[in-house]
Design a protein around this nucleic acid. Structure first.
Lengths: 153, 153
DNA sequence: GTTGAAACACCCTCAAT
DNA sequence: ATTGAGGGTGTTTCAAC
């Protein structure tokens, strides 16, 4: 396992909270010189711990008002079918998250779209090409927390 | 509603994909001068469309190997109880996402933690202080897609 | 780990078109 | 909207401690 010390964890916490901070500010927050901080950030990036920096948008302001979690039970489970299924999922841009899960269901999918009509389109596109046993939608009435920073273990 | 034209949408798409790009590079990608691009980014930030820039981490590399979606049915639904429930949720750092949902369940919670033992701690902390009717965990065996950029409508 | 310095790129503003 | 230019800031790499 990669070794990440307490200062690295501090840096990662700070950069999750605000990735636009200058290295000088990050260094000050974690109690390091700018130079040392730069070396650590560079190392964490090279190790792949920091995957990148990204803008976070306010979904409501761009008209993405509906979040739905789809739970899916599949009929087929072969390698080839799964590969096709994944490729198909990746072509639907409203799908922002997909997990293969255990238990009564096989997949959990998060969809962010404009409206019920938009969701219906996703539903149609998803079910048109693949053979699914059951599909249920859990509609988010209200998002209470989202995009919380990962907790450093 | 705020008006966001095709170029703004392009900018937002680019910055979601890579928020570390220089304005010169963003400008080149969307076919604008650096100056004009800067003005648009500034406007989008002031409008609140761009909420900020954040580092994205590789959760496996920092030892966060387990993702669980908790589905919760609550016993109480009063204003005061809900407020307390939310405050309690916010104190558990392994909880990265909470939605109030419609249907058979009341809340969907995403938990990212180290292990089953870590999940159990979250479970214990969550259920210790609040009165919940039913709690189920959907365990992610594999994450197929995550953090996909929001699709511009 | 630290400071200081130098070279360079980037950000932001302004003036002119 | 554009280009060009300038000052200030941030990044990256040194050398020395």
């Amino acid at each position: 396992m990669i070794d990440i010390d307490a200062i690295d964890r501090k840096i990662l916490t700070v950069l999750q909270r605000d990735g636009a901070l200058s290295q000088r500010d990050v260094a000050a927050e974690v109690g390091l010189s700018q130079n040392a901080c730069w070396r650590r950030i560079k190392r964490l990036t090279e190790l792949g711990v920091i995957e990148g920096f990204h803008a976070r948008l306010n979904s409501d302001l761009i008209g993405l008002d509906l979040t739905v979690f789809m739970m899916i039970r599949t009929r087929q489970h072969s390698e080839g079918w799964m590969r096709d299924f994944r490729k198909h999922l990746a072509t639907i841009p409203e799908i922002v998250e997909v997990h293969r899960i255990g238990g009564d269901w096989d997949y959990l999918i998060k969809v962010v779209t404009t409206s019920m009509a938009g969701y219906d389109q996703v539903y149609q596109r998803l079910t048109a090409k693949v053979d699914l046993e059951t599909v249920t939608g859990l509609f988010a009435m209200e998002t209470i927390l989202e995009n919380q920073p990962l907790h450093m273990p």
